[in-house]
Computed example of a mutant assay.
Amino acid sequence: MQRLPGKARSRQEVLRECEAEVAKMRGYIPRVLWDFLIPDLSRAFRWRVQLDCGCTTEVLTREDGTPPHEAQWKDHRSPLPPGQMTCHHDDSPPPPYRVIAEWGDRREVTFPADPIEPSDDTDPRVWSVLRRDEPHTSAFWEVTLACGHVEEAIAPSLDWVPASGPRRAAPERVQQMSAEFEDAWRANPELQTERDREHTRRMLADGWPAPEPERLCYSCPRVRMILAYERVGWLVPRQRQSRKATSTTPTPSRSALERRLRKAESEAERLRAELDRIDQGPLRPD
């Protein structure tokens, strides 16, 4: 933690923005879920953080115990690794391909039939091959990439599982595809970017696996590392608790304590005698 250049925003301004956002959330979140999904602003603590891109921004955490570089900030899909935050820049590089390191949860999505006419940027001949004229369902798997970020991959079929491994094309077909791609690249050098061209070559060298072992990571271009942070304070000021006055009662003398002890022992003896009489029951005449 260190003192960062610049000044924090006005607390009142930040509080007004947060209150407006909370009011908006209450408009579309069911009341029964408010305690779970809507932040308690009275427990929000403000920080300023400096990122490796040179930007300094403000963030809020729940309570003040976890500093920003230890928290997990969310991206478009899931929490980022600790110490990372997003910060958009217009000159950020394009998403890179990353190797899939881990397969996670699965979900199914049903799509309607594709439209008959292709979009303006799609060749009609290509569309005639790709188009699905019936509704179809696809399986999407959540994947963690080697960079630690999370994306989704489409399975080649509904019954596919990661333990099955990728399905590959026949060697003859891969050889034919390689020649076709090389011809297409020579005819149109701008058909693919250098990034996508190298990816295609890797997939061809691997037998054209499905699903592909690489995915584009859309988090990497906008993720930054937290270099330093500064405490700002509570979003809602906390009332100072008055300290209880420290007791100044003097310690009793030894003689006083001995008198209290004898009195307590005498009372204990009397109570034991009462218990004995109760245990013996009422006296009966001879």
Rank of each mutant, 00 (worst) to 15 (best):
E117R: 12
D133S: 12
E258S: 07
E142G: 05
A268K: 14
Y97P: 05
D279A: 14
D121N: 13
P135L: 00
P67H: 06
E117D: 11
L158A: 03
R262T: 08
Q2L: 13
T144E: 08
E172K: 04
E19I: 08
R9Y: 11
M177K: 02
L227N: 07
S178M: 11
I226Q: 02
D279Q: 12
P115C: 06
T110I: 00
E265W: 09
R106D: 12
S10L: 04
A268I: 10
E102G: 06
L145E: 09
D206L: 15
R98V: 00
D279C: 10
Q241R: 15
P250K: 07
A256E: 15
P82S: 00
E151Q: 05
V129G: 11
T200W: 12
S78A: 15
R62A: 12
S119I: 06
Q175W: 01
P5Q: 11
P96M: 01
S242Q: 10
G104H: 07
E117P: 06
V126R: 15
A44V: 14
I100R: 03
R243C: 01
C87E: 04
G6N: 10
V109A: 03
L257P: 04
L191Y: 07
R260D: 15
Y218S: 08
D75F: 03
T144K: 12
P124G: 13
N188I: 02
F140M: 08
M203R: 09
V150P: 03
I100P: 00
P115M: 07
L283P: 04
P30D: 05
Q239L: 14
D105F: 11
K74R: 11
I29M: 01
D114W: 00
T86C: 13
R107Y: 01
R98Q: 07
E267C: 09
Q176M: 03
Y97H: 06
R31I: 01
V59Q: 08
A184I: 02
V99H: 11
R16D: 01
Y229F: 15
E134I: 04
L227R: 10
G54A: 03
A153Y: 01
E267S: 14
R284N: 07
R46W: 04
A256L: 10
T61E: 10
R77Y: 14
S78I: 00
K74G: 02
C220D: 10
L275W: 09
G104R: 06
L283M: 08
T57Q: 13
T144S: 06
W141K: 04
A179I: 02
E265C: 10
H149K: 06
H199V: 01
A139K: 14
L283K: 08
R284L: 13
R11G: 08
M225Q: 14
P252N: 09
C217P: 06
W73V: 04
E267N: 12
V49S: 06
W234D: 05
A139D: 09
L191S: 05
G6I: 09
A155G: 03
K74W: 11
W103Q: 00
C147T: 04
E198W: 03
P209F: 04
C53T: 01
E267I: 13
L261C: 09
R167Q: 06
L191G: 07
P82A: 05
R186W: 03
V32W: 13
R277A: 14
V232L: 00
A245D: 04
P67Q: 02
E117H: 14
V143N: 00
S128E: 15
I278W: 11
H136Y: 12
L227F: 08
Y229C: 00
